[in-house]
């Protein structure tokens, strides 16, 4: 067995003054950093665009829909290439922006389209009477969203948001294509350097596993906290 698995590899020096274990953990940190930053962008933009798409103004709705369609229908890897190769060559001032930021923006916008879709669906799934009841009480459009529609929709979209936040961790792996030194990049490079692909891949896969599992547990905890008694799966 020891000839098949050689875990000692992680304590070897990479030649750059750190062990492979340190490099692995470093890569994990990059994966999490890319994911968290992209997640913040995606959440802010996704919720905004999602709300915009449920308003009455047709022009604004069209813009919101266009946003969602563009960022949803182009593969992530191509969007990353566009941010990395195309945009800096068209706008010279962006030439020195580090690839980390470009990837975060790409992943953030890509995910924002998907989140906007869920926010829109969540708001539209609410009974029509809710909006009318709020209006009848004299709430403004903004107040209707702020106090009635969004708090209700939030609980409905929490489960799909969970799977989006797990997706963002998984999708951050595509950053390897522009050499951000995250987990997948580590797996490719360290695997090549050491020829110990299986050990390296196992460790990398485990860390992805742990990360997505953590997000999953976190949001299950959150879901339990915000249940409304008597509705949406809450207690009677």
């Amino acid at each position: 067995m020891s000839t098949f698995f050689d875990w000692q590899i992680f304590f070897k020096d990479t030649g750059a003054g750190q062990t492979y274990l340190q490099w692995l953990l470093n890569a994990w940190a990059w994966t999490l950093l890319v994911s968290i930053c992209a997640w913040i962008i995606a959440l802010i933009l996704g919720v905004s665009v999602g709300i915009i798409r449920t308003l009455q103004n047709q022009f604004i709705v069209f813009l919101g829909n266009a946003w969602a369609e563009v960022f949803r229908n182009i593969p992530l890897i191509i969007q990353i290439f566009i941010w990395y190769h195309v945009i800096p060559s068209l706008f010279i001032t962006l030439r020195h922006v580090p690839s980390f930021i470009l990837v975060v923006v790409a992943l953030g916008l890509f995910t924002s389209a998907r989140i906007s879709e869920q926010v829109k669906a969540g708001i539209e799934s609410l009974p029509k009477g809710q909006r009318q009841a709020a209006m009848a009480l004299g709430f403004s459009n903004f107040q209707t969203y702020r106090y009635i529609l969004l708090p209700l929709a939030f609980r409905i979209i929490l489960p799909p948001l969970t799977s989006e936040s797990m997706n963002i961790i998984k999708n951050s792996s595509v950053a390897f294509a522009v050499s951000v030194s995250e987990l997948t990049m580590f797996a490719l490079q360290a695997g090549e350097e050491t020829s110990r692909n299986i050990e390296i891949f196992l460790a990398t896969t485990c860390l992805y596993f742990v990360s997505t599992l953590f997000v999953n547990q976190l949001s299950q905890f959150l879901e339990r906290r915000v249940k409304i008694p008597g509705t949406f799966g809450g207690d009677k």
Binding site: S172, F201, T205, Y208
Partner: peptide, 10 residues
């Protein structure tokens, strides 16, 4: 729970 890229590599 695993990124597709990792699955492809695996």
């Amino acid at each position: 729970s695993i990124p597709l890229v990792m699955v492809i590599l695996w």
